[in-house]
Design a protein around this nucleic acid. Structure first.
Lengths: 128, 128
DNA sequence: CTTGACCTTGACACCGGTGTCAGGGGCTAG
DNA sequence: CTAGCCCCTGACACCGGTGTCAAGGTCAAG
């Protein structure tokens, strides 16, 4: 199929699919006229890539296990990607931790300024 | 004081301080030779800006309440910034929610592929 | 033939705080 | 005088998936 139909079928833009293709993440070959020609297996491939992008992977990361990406036709994740998923999970946990700490800092600022009107006691002209 | 000393005193780079200054967030005037001249109050001002940046505010957001930033000499937050802090808190909560959902999705993928070894049913003739 | 839809590649824009370089002055000590 | 350090402005790079435009080729339908 042409790239336009693949775009319609996957919900990704043709622009993005060309991007994935250039990264070697999609199985494709060229017709005599230069057009990309995709098989049906390209549909789950594109969706797999899009899904991993939504999960926070970069194309470069995804590119580290392209052989299995190209074979991928199901929702199952190939072994190469499992380690990446675990790393990504750890990264997400780090972000959750940082964000929670950030939230605490925001709450601290708000608590210190929200209820107590008298700012006099805190420091009229002193940096802490 | 010159920008170099202010940089040393605040821990921010001179480059960043010029950036903040251009945004009108730091009280400064120019000497005859064109050099910026900062007073002692610039130290907490720069640190306040840096702190808000670490809290995830953009310079543009901070610029929406510069009058109070310029007066700011304490750790207390001026009223103008309170609303921004609340919005920021809401944003952080959204991010926490999204991240938690992301984490669930990652766990789902891992759970579905981690324990169950029999990839046979998923991929009939896979040369793993 | 023309029209129009679809395809190709290449390149720029975006976001935004920061690093870094280039080119030019100021100022002080020797 | 020079050496050396500090300052000035302006501009480019970065990151990375995506939108968008330009300029051109392909091809089926009328």
């Amino acid at each position: 199929m042409n790239i336009g139909e693949l775009a319609r079928r996957t919900g990704s833009s043709a622009r993005s699919i060309r991007h994935y293709d250039k990264a070697g993440l999609i199985a494709s070959h060229r017709r005599d006229n230069g057009y990309r020609d995709f098989g049906d297996e390209a549909v789950p491939q594109v969706m797999q890539v899009a899904r991993m992008i939504r999960l926070g992977f970069s194309l470069e990361e995804i590119s580290t296990f392209p052989p299995c990406m190209l074979r991928q036709v199901t929702n199952a994740v190939c072994p190469d990607a499992l380690a990446a998923h675990r790393e990504r999970l750890a990264e997400v946990d780090r972000q959750l931790f940082d964000l929670a700490r950030l939230r605490e800092r925001l709450l601290t600022v708000l608590d210190a300024n929200d209820s107590p009107l008298p700012s006099t006691e805190r420091a009229p002209h002193e940096p802490s």
